[in-house]
């Protein structure tokens, strides 16, 4: 059960859960008490600011003077802002290259580790550790050094007589180093794949084998179809996460998004606009565009999933 399958279930048919005929006495009052913190948070910390942000996106606001209504100016400005368009390009490039690579890696390793391999818990831990650390400033700082002009990568390369670039300071390669960092954190989706593989009933393989299916055929006709819901879940999760990447780009580029805006992620540009130039109306408009992109992409994914995700229910 995941957030994704839960949401999927809500739209469609009612699941076979018992529906009580009448509300139980006193439940409503108890619910109000138990949900009170969440309700307050939802309205004050989440929904309220969302509405405020929608309003601010139509204003010119710098914290210092009251917001001034400017209609759709922020939105039209966005489409003429070459730095914003570049930041979209950088972010899309990052998302659409590193997420599939990361998931492929996760799946490959999960397949190798599945089958009651001896020492599985140890391998799983080793491969999972980077996922826990990958989002930290410490690792981003390490990356800055490892791919720096006299960093670890280049000193390893020089052992083989190759002279490397300053990877993080070269506009053609800086984004690549961040993609490598994202692929490096394949451990979390790998664990989800491992759990998914374990749920595939043994008898399917036995039946396929009796029907004369070889290993490759079993993989293609049993493993992959039964794993598609998990692949879908991982894909949604990683796409949403990757779109919001901030820390790594901020730290590796020293907060600038450089060199030459090559690591200027969308969220980094939003941060600079909102909190460095205090252009908060524009930053709010950017935030809504981000939400629209993520929601749109997720919706497309859900629609497309009809054609490739196989639900066994």
């Amino acid at each position: 059960m995941s957030v994704v399958s839960e949401l999927r279930g809500m739209g469609g048919k009612k699941r076979g859960k018992r529906q009580p005929s009448a509300m139980r006495k006193g439940d409503g009052k108890a619910a109000a008490i138990f949900l009170a913190p969440w309700f307050i948070g939802l309205f004050l910390i989440t929904a309220g600011p969302m509405i405020a942000s929608a309003y601010l996106s139509f204003t010119d606001y710098s914290l210092l003077a009251p917001p001034e209504w400017i209609g759709f100016d922020n939105y039209t400005r966005m489409f003429e802002d070459p730095r914003l368009i570049n930041s979209l390009k950088v972010t899309f490039l990052y998302v659409f290259i590193s997420v599939p690579l990361q998931l492929a890696m996760a799946l490959a390793l999960a397949l190798v580790l599945d089958r009651g391999l001896r020492g599985l818990p140890i391998y799983r831990s080793i491969y999972y550790l980077p996922s826990l650390l990958g989002g930290s400033v410490a690792i981003a700082l390490l990356w800055r050094q490892v791919f720096g002009a006299d960093g670890l990568v280049n000193s390893v390369l020089s052992v083989f007589g190759i002279e490397g670039e300053g990877w993080v300071s070269h506009p053609d390669y800086a984004l690549g180093t961040l993609m490598v960092l994202n692929v490096w954190t394949f451990g979390a989706p790998m664990i989800i794949f491992l759990a998914g593989l374990r749920q595939i009933p043994q008898m399917y393989y036995e039946a396929a084998s009796i029907d004369g299916a070889g290993k490759w055929r079993q993989f293609r006709s049993v493993t992959i179809p039964l794993l598609t819901p998990i692949i879908f879940f991982n894909l949604i999760l990683q796409l949403i996460g990757a779109f919001q990447t901030f820390t790594q780009a901020y730290v590796v580029s020293g907060g600038t998004g450089g060199p030459a805006d090559s690591t200027m992620f969308y969220t980094l540009y939003l941060y600079q606009k909102g909190f460095a130039s205090l252009d908060m109306g524009y930053a709010s408009a950017m935030a809504w565009l981000l939400l629209a992109i993520i929601a749109g992409m997720t919706a497309v994914n859900f629609l497309a999933s009809k054609y490739w995700v196989f639900y066994n229910d």
Partner: peptide
């Protein structure tokens, strides 16, 4: 709300 990006609400939150 689990999937809501923090960026959408961070500016008004800051103001608040």
């Amino acid at each position: 709300s689990i999937m809501l990006p923090i960026h959408v609400i961070i500016v008004p939150q800051y103001i608040l």
